[in-house]
Design a protein around this nucleic acid. Structure first.
Length: 548
RNA sequence: GCGCCUGUAGCUCAGUAGGAUAGAGCAACUGCCUUCUAAGCAGUGGGUCAGGGGUUCGAAUCCCUUCAGGCGCGCCA
């Protein structure tokens, strides 16, 4: 609905010789101000050098020549707001489009722009914890809405399967093998090793036992194989967790592969040719200060080894080489100090700084009965995503994450989350869908079916119904806002508002009545609501159950 | 010390790219199942938007500053 208004306003402004102004259209807080409103006259006043009211009058008179039957009236408020009241016929006609047009909510904002979203990317040295779950929920929802908005999105998981941590993983598994399989209780556990029980489970698997059979100490070859094996098993667990959580990826990018294919070396060489690499104190540095970083960063250490940053350079170069025009990295907030140097790399490689966005996922602090639970992978003492989603369902967990902005710290009391699971907001929204499904079931059992063949509705919708109709028709505004701001949580809040309108309506009015026209009109409304709710839930990666 | 994030109702959080009289859920209390699902509905109470200054037609939102909390600041990954 708002799209129609936006379109004709764009045309009108063009007529007036203005085509560089952003058009803000919003739903006023108070219904008394109309259905939609725009503060554009205030902005226009400066350009036209006329007072806001005069500018508004100019705009309105021209606007009406385009599509007069869209509005009941257009008013100018004392402060210069232009308030539109939409006509019932225009609104109901549009309502039918939601039902008949399966792509109604698609809007081509992205115009096929290639965007890569990288998220989760947890090290394969332990199971996913809640913070990863939060990143997964956000990344998935973001890629869903961007895809719906016409972007060409690829979801990627970056596997840190190279470097010392993996070596340490192998050593940890070996120590547990000696201790738990060979009963060599005094075998020393590596100081910084991974202490979680999952390491013991890996050590006890047949594959590991077969590999390590009769092995008293790690030879380089066996260590290498054990690393690979442990990493694979860990990664399989992660993949299983993600898939059970409802998260999918288009590509799993291995860090190790970057080294094996010489891409790290190539990337450094490439930057070197551009003059961004220099030597100092026996090491090689990337001149990231040239692009706004605090200090230059080492890429090759004195001992000739690459730093972790070096492989990240190669990784981000690969993203560009694959043709992505926008790069979104979703990281834990504790990595924020890393943004500038990666941004510097991408700029050095020719990407505009606006085309690189990092979404920081703030910490999830877990409380159990009011007391914080410590989260350390090394000590093995942390709450996994698996535990939580098994306890309160993946839907509830995702909704919990997506009813918050991703960049604000989040506290979850696991006891409360469990207790509230039957009163959780996600059920409130899903219940709308289930109830409407139930209505249609009842309708078809009495021989009534939804008829969309005619666009004439011989029924006068009540005020409550008009409120619902508008809410549904304005859903694309929320979607658009979520896309532009990259904030999927807005959809979760919208859905709660829509549910907050539907449930009271359901309670006071019956959809299936003796009157044919009334029933028909109300079924149309219900179908539109159902489509909207199921679309919104789908964007969030949450199911829309037929029954509850 | 420097940098990033945060501070809104008792609690957990929204606040729609600076817009109109600051919202929701939870918790508390009171009612409502013979109806298409009570995971629901109706009602009641609750605020110095951390403090101060500035920018303008207009600020919870932008800028400066103070205070409070969190997280970073390796030739670790």
């Amino acid at each position: 609905m708002e799209r129609i208004l936006r379109d004709i306003m764009t045309l009108t402004l063009k007529d007036m010789g203005i085509d560089d102004t952003t058009i803000d259209i919003e739903v006023p807080r108070d219904e008394g101000y109309g259905d939609l409103s725009t503060p554009i006259a205030m902005r226009l006043a400066k350009k036209l050098k006329k007072p806001p009211k005069a500018s508004a009058l100019d705009l309105i008179s021209k606007l009406k020549t385009y599509q007069d039957d869209l509005f009941d009236n257009i008013e100018i408020a004392g402060n210069g707001f232009i308030n539109f009241r939409l006509s019932k016929t225009a609104l109901t006609k549009e309502l039918l489009k939601i039902i008949t047009n399966d792509d109604y909510f698609k809007e081509d904002i992205g115009k096929g722009k290639k965007v890569q979203i990288e998220f989760v990317s947890a090290n394969p040295t332990g199971p996913l914890h809640l913070g990863h779950g939060r990143g997964a929920a956000v990344g998935m929802a973001l890629s869903n809405i961007l895809t719906e908005a016409g972007y060409d999105v690829q979801k990627e998981y970056y596997i840190n399967d190279a470097g010392r941590q993996i070596s340490l993983l192998g050593e940890s598994v070996f120590a547990r093998y000696r201790q738990n399989v060979c009963n060599d209780i005094d075998y020393p556990f590596p100081e910084d090793g991974y202490k979680g029980d999952y390491i013991i489970e890996i050590a006890k698997t047949d594959e590991v036992k077969r590999l390590l059979d009769g092995c008293n100490n790690l030879t380089p070859q066996i260590h290498e194989t054990l690393n690979r094996l442990s990493c694979e098993m860990m990664l399989n667990d992660i993949k299983k967790d993600l898939s059970d959580f409802g998260i999918s990826f288009d590509n799993w990018q291995s860090e190790k592969m970057l080294y094996e294919k010489g891409m790290v070396q190539n990337a450094i060489q490439h930057l070197s040719q551009k003059g961004y690499i220099y030597e100092k104190d026996g090491a090689r540095w990337f001149k990231s200060t040239a692009f706004g970083d605090d200090k230059d960063r080492v890429v090759i250490k004195q001992d000739g080894e690459y730093t972790y940053f070096a492989s990240d350079i190669a990784y981000h170069k690969l993203k560009l080489d694959k043709g992505y025009e926008e790069i979104v990295d979703i990281w834990g907030a504790d990595h924020h100090g890393y943004i500038n140097r990666v941004s510097a790399v991408l700029q050095a490689l020719g990407l505009k700084s606006e085309a690189f966005k990092v979404l920081l996922i703030q910490m999830v602090t877990l409380l159990r009965g009011g007391k914080p639970v410590s989260m350390s992978k090394r000590s093995g003492d942390f709450i996994t995503l698996r535990e939580v989603m098994d306890e309160i369902t993946p839907d509830t967990t995702k909704f919990l994450f997506l009813t918050r902005r991703h960049d604000t710290p989040l506290e979850i009391d696991i006891e409360k989350a469990k207790m509230q699971s039957s009163e959780n907001p996600v059920y409130y929204v899903q219940y709308v869908h289930a109830r409407i499904c139930s209505i249609f079931e009842k309708a078809s059992s009495t021989g009534i079916n939804l008829d969309t063949s005619s666009d004439v509705i011989s029924y006068n919708y009540t005020d409550d119904e008009m409120r619902l109709i508008k809410k549904v028709l304005f859903y694309p505004m929320t979607l658009r806002g979520a896309v532009l701001s990259r904030e999927p949580h807005r959809i979760a809040f919208y859905l709660q508002e829509l549910a907050g309108l539907f449930h009271p309506y359901y309670h006071t009015e019956r959809v299936i009545t003796d009157d044919k026209d009334t029933t028909h009109a109300r079924l149309i409304l219900c179908e539109a609501i159902k489509k909207t709710v199921s679309h919104g839930l789908k964007m969030l990666g949450v199911s829309a159950p037929q029954k509850m």
